[in-house]
């Protein structure tokens, strides 16, 4: 049932989702208001993230093979999903971990929300591009590639701008912390790899210990 509280919630979601389009064209103003004026919602952020992942997946299916031939036998959609979610997660963690130590005003959730809002240009451009891909020949591939690259550059550049607004950083400081966050991401990946290889070796040790014990006892 659509109670009035629910309708209000939906309206708030819709309004905050529409605000993402405003952010896409007015980044500085938009991302300031996103947290400081509380115009963004987690619901909208999650929805934009969902749209992005969804776009990535339908791109696989519907983009013309002229642009992107796909070896379906060796395709794992979970890897494609992770290719967005995993960098996002470690970016948010690395950025929050660093900026919180250096006067960054953004909270963990706000960093996540702003980053998700920045992803809107990706579905915005890529979905029309799926249609375009099916009418271009291999000689006209460049049109597609340029637009496709544009969507990525747009997203990345907007993330940098958004972080500056969220943390109330100056341009120089923002730039420095962007680089530092990227470095932080590398460190996190390194530690994760180390951790997993250690754990797997540790587990293997105890398994072989157990096997040995069972072998002796039987």
């Amino acid at each position: 049932m659509l109670t009035s509280a629910r309708i209000e919630k939906l309206q708030r979601f819709w309004k905050s989702f529409k605000f993402a389009f405003y952010c896409a064209t007015h980044p500085l103003d938009g991302y300031w208001d996103l947290t400081h004026e509380r115009r963004g919602t987690y619901a909208a952020a999650n929805f934009i993230l969902f749209l992005t992942v969804f776009t990535k997946l339908i791109k696989l299916q519907f983009t013309s093979f002229v642009i992107e031939p796909i070896d379906w036998e060796n395709t794992n959609i979970f890897l494609h999903i992770a290719s967005i979610l995993f960098p996002l997660a470690i970016w948010v963690v690395a950025n929050w971990g660093l900026t919180t130590l250096f006067d960054g005003k953004g909270k963990f959730g706000q960093i996540y929300m702003a980053t998700c809002y920045c992803m809107l240009p990706y579905p915005m451009i890529q979905i029309p591009l799926i249609f375009l891909s099916n009418v271009v020949t291999s000689e006209e591939k460049e049109f597609y590639s340029v637009l496709s690259a544009l969507s990525l550059v747009w997203v990345l550049f907007w993330i940098i701008l958004a972080m500056g607004q969220i943390h109330e950083f100056s341009v120089g400081k923002n730039f420095f912390f962007t680089i530092a966050s990227l470095f932080g991401m590398l460190v996190i990946v390194f530690i994760l790899l180390l951790f997993f290889s250690m754990i797997s070796q540790g587990v293997a040790y105890f398994i072989s210990l157990g096997k040995e014990a069972m072998f002796r006892m039987s």
């Binding site: 093979f65 002229v66 031939p69 009418v135 020949t137 291999s138 000689e139």
Partner: peptide
């Protein structure tokens, strides 16, 4: 052409079809 990922010939056909 699409079945066998032959993009050159596919493009030739697509151009005419378009």
């Amino acid at each position: 052409f699409e079945l066998k990922y032959n993009d050159d010939n596919y493009s030739k056909a697509l151009k005419q079809y378009r």
